[in-house]
């Protein structure tokens, strides 16, 4: 079977896939993306480029995806429905394809009230499901008005789900709707508590899609509490937070920070181990959010090296 990307090839071949996220710079520094890509490209199969997470403006995700290609890795370009209308989306997809981007991941996008630009006018012309439909439509050779395209883009389409979101039945239907709109792979919100993820996977498994379980390594209890409070869809159990706290107790300064970070890595490794044994999970997606140095360590210690060729 002909595959469009390495990510697709590995997933369809049944390899346990590793992807990791690079947050684009809050500015025009192109070296940051290349440096972060270099740091982890031997440890993962594709590198995700986020799209203005929480409505905080960062470098354009298609430009950063192109930088990932220049650095010798395969990008997964995120596209948030929040800030674009259909005219801009079609335009962005032509450009992304021209820049060599083939993996697309659609998200609805956190509400911009939660970010640094709450004064912005909201767009939400479509949701992630309808965005997938637009991408699939373009791949058929015409734009939404029916006009024939000068160059037909091809993409491997993906999206996200959050196993902790409610109501669970409706959230699983959304995964099905995304699949029916063309999504072939999914990455999840960060997994901490396992049983709810298992329950959700019971609903996802019959849909026959590829799932990458999200992993965000915790640096300490402060980060965990911040995420529970401020990042939509995150549910870090209280006992995990106390575990991080206990790791640092009796210590101060750098020693304390290091002990808590080490514990965060342990928790992440346990999570990776747990999700690997869940039927229907085809890989992991590491979101290091500014702690990119941890990615090679996690992948190595999880026994996921060398990556398949």
């Amino acid at each position: 079977m002909l595959t469009l990307t390495r990510l697709q090839e590995l997933l369809e071949r049944g390899e346990f896939v590793v992807t990791a996220e690079v947050g684009p710079p809050h500015g025009s520094d192109s070296r940051m993306v290349i440096t972060k890509t270099d740091l982890m490209k031997e440890h993962c199969d594709a590198i995700n480029i986020t799209d203005n997470v929480r409505g905080i403006p960062t470098m354009d995700s298609s430009v950063c995806s192109h930088l990932v290609i220049q650095a010798g890795a395969e990008p997964v370009m995120h596209i948030s429905a929040r800030d674009r209308n259909r005219i801009q989306l079609e335009s962005a997809l032509y450009g992304a394809h021209a820049l060599g981007v083939r993996n697309l991941l659609f998200v609805t996008g956190d509400h911009s009230l939660l970010g640094t630009h709450p004064e912005a006018k909201l767009v939400y012309d479509f949701d992630s499901i309808q965005a997938l439909q637009i991408a699939r439509h373009l791949m058929s050779g015409t734009d939404l008005s029916g006009q024939k395209l000068e160059g037909i883009p091809e993409f491997y389409l993906g999206s996200t789900f959050n196993p902790y979101a409610d109501p669970i039945e409706l959230q699983i239907w959304r995964v099905e709707k995304k699949r029916d709109s063309g999504a072939r792979f999914f990455q999840t919100q960060a997994i901490y508590e396992i049983s709810r993820f298992e329950e959700f996977m019971d609903g996802v498994r019959p849909l026959g899609v590829h799932v990458l379980a999200g992993v965000i390594p915790l640096k300490g209890p402060k980060m965990a509490r911040f995420m529970n409070r401020r990042i939509p869809g995150i549910a870090i159990p209280e006992e995990m937070i106390s575990r991080l706290e206990r790791a640092g107790s009796g210590l101060t300064g750098d020693a304390r920070r290091k002990a808590m970070k080490d514990e965060g890595v342990e928790i992440a490794l346990e999570t990776i181990e747990a999700v690997r044994s869940i039927n229907g999970v085809n890989g992991i997606h590491i979101m290091a959010v500014g702690w990119e140095e941890v990615v090679p360590e996690l992948v190595e210690r999880a026994g996921l090296l060398p990556r398949p060729r």
Binding site: R82, D127, I129, T160, D166, Q171, P232, G233
Partner: peptide
Amino acid sequence: CPKGLLNGPCGGAMNGKCEVNPEQDCAWQ
């Protein structure tokens, strides 16, 4: 729904509440 979604709740809907404001009921719930 603060995002005006038509295909069900976003991934920020938890325990019947909205990601934008935890006091606010999720319209999709």
